[in-house]
Design a protein around this nucleic acid. Structure first.
Lengths: 299, 299
DNA sequence: GAGGCTTTTTCTCATAGTCAGAAAAAGCAC
DNA sequence: GTGCTTTTTCTGACTATGAGAAAAAGCCTC
């Protein structure tokens, strides 16, 4: 029974370089749409699994062999693609280091898409200057009392109307709220105030899903190590975690956490720095078998 | 571009009654395959979203209106269905109370499918009597040293070769290991020892995915309350959590946890029991807005 | 209505884990 | 050697967790 429906595989490929998380996007100029994720259609005859199909497309479009890969979500709402009904199975992949540049794709810092998600230098000005009033206006514009109440609850949860209650894992909820409020270029009826850089289709929503998922998963799975080189210093580990979490962590406590959890082991070598030389560590892969919840439960 | 691929929507609908978690499955006798999840194909013309399509099918096949619904995973491996290539987007749904019986479906206790997952009455005998030797044989049967090492690690993680290291959230890893080891009827080459009741297609794998997901999510999301009636005693809450987690919890500590987290509030009423009457509580929905991680982090 | 039974509820306490800051250590540059 | 930078170790207050004991509040029987 042939059906008029396309099944696509979309890839969010993440890396951290220069303390900046980056995502692989297609560059302008090619035949395929720019500011879009690497993607292609699922081939039911050729691809034995969904994973395999995705790897094939990423290799083809970005010349990259992916390491760790996990399914993110399947998107199927009507209106995702103006041309026809598309079901997209999105995957999240990590690559160890910044891969060499390949024509047609580029590594784009993902906080360009989500400037409100990076709190490493303190509360981003955009939150108070732009987001807070715009969200308040959206709440106020609710058609009835029930809707006002629902919008208020969502706003409080997503952007923490009350002070410091900002939770990094809610990246998707925030993006979806902004989308509904007409605060992003991809909105159905975008307003005059537009936050962050836009992407093609609903790909920014997919990346927001990935961001929230990563931040949650860091707590209980050793994901960071997929993004670090085999040998690293604890300061590098900290910087990478901070880049992903979008906020500062306390070095001494992080050190205690990873050492007591036996997530890493010293290689014996050191690396020179501008100050005291740093010991090099490697990930202890055995923890995956030892303890099912082997993450870095920073708070 | 029509493609020769079916897109199905599969529902894992869960409820807890008589302290037993149950899943909705199709009964024998109808036109559709028995021991299968409620499912149907996605209609790209009619269904505005994937959720909507799934709700439509569940209403049609089980006469149920679903409450809370979340996407579980998308399955697409070749060989899932002998007839043709099927992509299944699986959803997880909870219903408040055991709904009335409807022809064509039944509520089946899910530990019939996974007898090794219920540790409420202590370590299930099947673990030591059947699973341990069978898994050891599977490890020993590895073709080379590298494979032996990998199987050992997986076995240690999934079924805890060393004593008490059994983790409820790894239900999927366990089922997949058993599948590969030929220990379930659905295996490609099933052996003489078969664990639990079988289901149609790969639906037992889907339910195992749901079980693992639920157990993980309980820790940081207020999911249990979707399965409880609006008013409940803390003993009922405990029994429901125990049914899902598959193990006993410590009552006084659980009480402290939910009260200090302000997850519940007393209704003022009490219910008589065989002993001291129990206060009735209701879920405080406001916590969802207040605290992004509002689960019951029992350990 | 006293005593015993059952179940809920409160209390206690030792132990472990977390948060934040101070201070020490180890190199480099001058 | 002195000052600077960065890593690393240490400290102490505070909070959370795990496990058990004990109290409370009803019912039932006699």
């Amino acid at each position: 029974m042939p059906i008029d429906l396309a099944v696509a595989l979309d890839a969010v490929v993440a890396a951290v370089s220069d303390d900046e998380p980056r995502v692989l996007v297609r560059a302008p100029g090619g035949e395929l749409p720019a500011d879009a994720l690497p993607a292609g259609s699922f081939d039911p005859d050729g691809d034995r699994t969904l994973d395999a199909g995705l790897r094939r497309w990423v290799t083809e479009q970005a010349g990259l062999d992916l390491g760790h890969l996990e399914q993110l979500y399947t998107f199927g709402d009507r209106g995702r693609d103006a041309r026809r009904r598309v079901l997209s199975v999105a995957y999240l992949a990590f690559v160890h280091e910044r891969a060499p540049h390949v024509a047609g794709v580029r590594w784009h810092p993902w906080y360009r898409y989500f400037p409100w998600e990076d709190w490493r230098a303190g509360r981003p000005p955009i939150v108070d200057e732009t987001i807070a009033p715009a969200v308040a206006a959206w709440v106020a514009a609710a058609p009835d009392a029930e809707m006002t109440r629902r919008r208020e609850l969502r706003a409080r949860r997503a952007v923490g109307t009350s002070g410091k209650a900002w939770n990094g894992e809610l990246a998707l909820e925030r993006y979806e709220l902004f989308w509904e409020a007409g605060l992003v270029a991809e909105s159905r009826n975008p307003g005059p105030v537009l936050l962050g850089e836009r992407m093609a289709f609903d790909h920014r929503r997919i990346v927001a899903t990935a961001l929230g998922r990563i931040r949650g998963a860091l707590q209980y799975r050793p994901l960071v190590f997929e993004l670090l080189p085999p040998d690293f210093t604890l300061a590098e580990l900290q910087a990478t975690l901070e880049a992903l979490a979008g906020r500062r962590l306390h070095g001494p406590n992080l050190r205690r956490l990873v050492e007591e959890a036996a997530l890493v082991e010293p290689t014996g070598a050191v690396r020179r720095t501008a100050g005291r030389p740093a010991k090099l560590y490697r990930f202890r892969a055995a923890v995956i078998a030892e303890r099912p919840r082997a993450g870095i439960a920073f708070r």
